[in-house]
């Protein structure tokens, strides 16, 4: 602080607290709503303090789900989300690591073409090519399957660029030393590059896990089998129940359960998360 201005200091804290209230209030409301019986949420104003149905609501959700929305247990949905998120994360990191390695450490025809092809994926988000991508996945027989949920999403320009950037900072002497010691490229990759990339991999893991867990449109398009529903996508069936009114205590409970894993990851690994976010976007 340059000078002492008590008023400015107070204002600073007021702004921060107001921001926190604005960000946390929706989750507070959801958390409270998820602990009440359905009847308590049928007329306004709804309660602002916890009810006593929390345990009953959550165990109903996890074990049996919401009957009006198909009755898929949330435990199944969350497990599907976990598989999908981990599959996407591991897949993206693995194929990006090896393609960045090839592009940085080898000279071969069409190298730049491959680089630009990977770059092009940045410009083609799923949202703009919904139908044709759906057709491709359908013709490969990958609808309603874990590979269908995971593989089409694992190309990653961001991860490839991040690793490429990082590999460029590794001193050439390491390669020379490895070659003098008669280590081949794969040995060099495995014994030297991978251990050096550990922090970058960990930081990227957090960002990609959140990305994978929060997928919505893709699982919505390619899963019609209830056993493969993911939780972020599944909540939509509880909100849009057609004629009926959404069962808000269950819907809010689902929202809370769906946000716990990624939020926990961010909070527990805060330092790595910030590094991963700021660096992967350059």
């Amino acid at each position: 602080m340059v000078e002492n201005r008590p008023l400015a200091a107070i204002l600073t804290h007021v702004v921060l607290i107001a921001g926190i209230v604005f960000l946390c209030f929706p989750v507070w409301v959801a958390l409270v709503a998820s602990t009440h019986p359905g009847e308590a949420l049928q007329r306004s104003p709804i309660p602002m303090w916890f009810g006593d149905q929390g345990f009953a609501n959550y165990s109903q959700l996890l074990r049996e789900g919401v009957p009006a929305a198909g009755g898929v247990p949330l435990s199944t949905m969350m497990l599907n989300s976990l598989f999908m998120a981990l599959g996407i994360t591991v897949g993206k990191i693995a194929i990006s690591l090896i393609s960045a390695f090839a592009i940085v450490y080898f000279r071969f025809p069409f190298r730049m073409l491959f680089f630009w092809l990977i770059f092009a994926t940045l410009m083609l988000p799923v949202e703009v090519r919904i139908l044709p991508t759906y057709d491709v996945v359908a013709s490969l027989g990958m609808l309603n399957s874990y590979p269908g949920l995971i593989i089409p999403l694992i190309a990653s320009a961001t991860a490839t660029f991040l690793f490429r950037q990082f590999f460029m900072t590794i001193p050439d002497e390491l390669v020379e030393a490895a070659r003098i010691d008669r280590a081949g490229p794969l040995r060099f990759f495995w014994d030297i590059l991978l251990p050096l990339s550990r922090t970058n991999i960990a930081a990227l893991f957090i960002i990609l896990f959140i990305y994978g867990w929060n997928q919505y449109l893709w699982p919505f398009l390619i899963t019609t089998d209830q056993d493969l529903y993911t939780v972020v996508m599944g909540i939509q069936r509880m909100v849009n129940v057609g004629e009926g009114v959404p069962i808000w205590n269950y819907t809010m409970g689902t929202a809370i359960l769906a946000m716990i894993p990624p939020v926990l990851v961010v909070l527990v690994m805060q330092r790595l998360f910030v590094k991963g976010l700021v660096e992967s976007e350059k």
Binding site: L23, I210, W213, N214, Y216, V232, M233, I235, Q236, A255, A258, M259, P262, V263, V265, V266, L267, L277
Partner: peptide, 9 residues
């Protein structure tokens, strides 16, 4: 933390 909340949620 809201960064981790899915847009749908």
């Amino acid at each position: 933390w809201p960064y981790a909340v899915a847009p749908a949620l």
